[in-house]
Design a protein around this nucleic acid. Structure first.
Lengths: 168, 168
DNA sequence: CACGGTATGTCAGACTCCTGACATGAGTCA
DNA sequence: TGACTCATGTCAGGAGTCTGACATACCGTG
């Protein structure tokens, strides 16, 4: 290790640090998810469905922070592999509620344990009070960013597609 | 707004919230950077070079949280557009130190102002003490994630390529 | 009922970024 | 000096995601 420390001292920017933390978490998750043949989005989708069965494609997309087009591609693969089922036709409207199959649930079980371990490691050195404080502060940042972003709709709906789908 | 509130209540996971915050920040940055014809990585590269002239491709990659392959592509475009210069040959080793051109510096100036505005908005509702606390907590998370990740090298060098390039 | 606004599912093309691999240069140690 | 390790720059191929576009279905208003 003869490297001369290529570290960057953007240590003054909270935004930079936020990205750094998020990247570190993503990498750690990818590392434990890769052996299971899963991506982070993949896992997120399954986890979302486990907690909220019947979520639609668009809802899943918002929850996993991707576009609904991307989530659609993923859902099709998940359906093909038998991890998720969707009705062939919508009962009402166009919404196709997705549900985990037993196989999908099983697949999620390992992944969920792995991811929980990562999150535990991340929070290892923090007290409960610190975790609560971190939670509060992050929520504040999110709110501040969103409140003035799309024109101040005030909702906390995490809409990813910010500009596509124009009516034309 | 007849939507039934598709919000997800993963409100118990700090990891999820971290990703949410990071996504919100990225979207906000893209929003202000798009009119300037810049991506976030694009901006990061310029900002890094402004603060540390002469950084190498690999160093920039680590600093912007992408692989050195991706950064190389970006640097080539930046060179082509006259925002960055690199010597044709390495003075020592293979490292090609990159530097901003006046044009690159000018381009960065607008972007930097825009990004700073976003970051200010994000921190709008936080006191100095809260910002310092957020900083400390995020650093703790990063350290915890990295300390046990690649085998515990203990350094805070942000290495992105975690497994490629094996000697084989 | 007709109409505009909004949300959804989906297809197609393009793009970004990553994985994998290779060759070269520098430092370390025997 | 030679072997080994580490870091870098670069090329090729592929997986994941995004932008753009279209058709359809709900909801409110007039």
């Amino acid at each position: 290790m003869s490297q001369k420390r290529s570290g960057i001292e953007l240590d003054t920017s909270l935004g930079y640090l936020l990205k750094e933390a998020s990247t570190a978490l993503r990498l750690a998750m990818e590392e434990v998810l890769r052996p299971l043949g899963m991506t982070v989005t993949h896992y997120s989708c399954l986890e979302l469905l486990a907690q909220r069965p019947g979520m639609s494609n668009s809802e899943l997309a918002r929850g996993a922070f991707v576009t609904r087009q991307s989530m659609n591609v993923l859902l099709q693969a998940l359906e093909r592999d038998g991890h998720v089922t969707r009705p062939a036709e919508a009962a009402v409207g166009k919404v196709l509620p997705a549900r985990l199959t037993p196989r999908g649930r099983e697949s999620l079980r390992e992944a969920s344990a792995a991811v929980r371990a990562v999150e535990s490691r991340m929070l290892g050195g923090m007290s409960d009070g610190e975790q609560a404080e971190a939670f509060r502060l992050l929520q504040g940042m999110i709110r501040s960013l969103r409140d003035d972003s799309d024109g101040g709709h005030g909702s906390d709906g995490s809409d990813q597609s910010h500009g596509s789908d124009r009516k034309g």
